[in-house]
């Protein structure tokens, strides 16, 4: 047996035995590339996701809501940081990952390309977007790459607070005035379908899914995740008397799951290919902050250098 195929065999055995692959282990190039793509996309999503929520930070209706929202957004920045660090263990730098985002070579969750238009959107984002993210992230705690799996364990601990703060906002609105109820319903109407889209295309049509499942990078199929999310979220909408905007939504006794309507895949394709309502705004803001911060990063580096030099003298 050649050395290369020996290494490959050891890698395959580890995957088969549900053992974790660690940064120093040999791994196929395609596995490494696939992970860098998925993990950096995940990191960028945490960071870009700060924007639609940050949009309401300065207008939050109470001081308590403002503090909770700020803490939540800070968590998301922290998630971005863990994930960039975990991705860097694969031999790329954060600068390279950010450059790939700015040049359109890396993606982020396309849900953040929708606008947050009212305070209720902050409720809907926590409830639905974090709710959908949790389903995905729980399964990723068992992903085959060690640093990614460990980042997910840390992140999942914080995510349930995010989902809860969002749902609590919705509960309060649903108990409130007509205008508040309407605001909540309107937010659900706008965020429901994009949340289902977060799970990606149907299993048969997903570009990276099959290989990712074989390598155990992904541990749950897109359609299974989506079903799980629908099943857990519809009863939460029922409790607060909000209507899920899907005429085909119906409990299926035989399956023990909700049946639901077909996603508008044209819209999905439009948004992931850069034509959603806020794609340009989100990327533009990230670039602007990065460019405006260039002199700050330069100053920091120059000062560190100066300090190191004087320490040597």
């Amino acid at each position: 047996m050649s050395e290369a195929s020996d290494l490959e065999q050891r890698f395959e055995d580890k995957i088969a035995a549900d053992e974790r692959i660690e940064p120093k282990d040999w791994m196929p190039d395609a596995y490494r590339k696939n992970l860098i793509r998925q993990m950096s996309q995940h990191a960028h999503s945490e960071v870009i996701g700060m924007q639609p929520e940050g949009n309401w930070l300065t207008r939050a209706p109470t001081l308590e809501r403002k503090s909770v929202l700020l803490a939540k957004i800070q968590d998301e920045a922290g998630h971005g940081l863990y994930l960039y660090s975990a991705t860097e263990t694969l031999g790329v730098t954060r600068e390279e990952l950010v450059a790939a985002l700015h040049e359109g070579r890396a993606k982020y969750a396309s849900i953040f390309n929708y606008p947050s238009l009212t305070w209720a959107d902050i409720g809907a984002i926590g409830w639905l977007v974090d709710g959908a993210a949790i389903v995905n992230q729980i399964s990723l705690q068992r992903t085959s790459y060690g640093p990614y799996a460990r980042a997910m364990v840390r992140i999942c601990k914080e995510e349930s607070f995010h989902q809860r703060q969002g749902y609590q906002i919705m509960v309060r609105l649903a108990e409130g005035s007509e205008a508040q109820k309407q605001m909540a319903q309107d937010a659900l109407n706008r965020w429901w379908w994009p949340s289902l889209m977060m799970f990606g295309p149907h299993d048969g049509e997903s570009a990276h899914s099959a290989q990712s499942m074989l390598w155990k990078i992904k541990r749950m199929s897109n359609d299974d995740g989506r079903q799980k999310f629908v099943d857990q979220t519809v009863p939460q909408a029922d409790i607060i008397d909000l209507t899920v905007p899907d005429p085909d939504l119906k409990w299926n006794e035989a399956r023990g799951h909700y049946d639901f309507g077909e996603i508008n895949w044209d819209e999905f394709m439009q948004v992931i290919s850069g034509n959603g309502p806020c794609n340009r705004q989100r990327l533009g803001q990230h670039k602007k902050a990065h460019e405006e911060g260039a002199w700050v990063r330069e100053a920091m580096a120059a000062y560190a250098k100066r300090k190191a030099e004087t320490a040597h003298d």
């Binding site: 960071v47 700060m50 924007q51 800070q74 920045a77």
Partner: peptide, 29 residues
């Protein structure tokens, strides 16, 4: 400080500014 959200020169600073913001909001309350 809330106005710096997603606008800091790098991610660690986003976190640090949010941290200070939380201290001030807590004190204000």
């Amino acid at each position: 400080l809330c106005e710096w959200c997603a606008d800091a020169p790098f991610l660690e600073e986003d976190i640090a500014i949010a941290n200070a913001g939380l201290d001030y909001l807590g004190r204000a309350r």
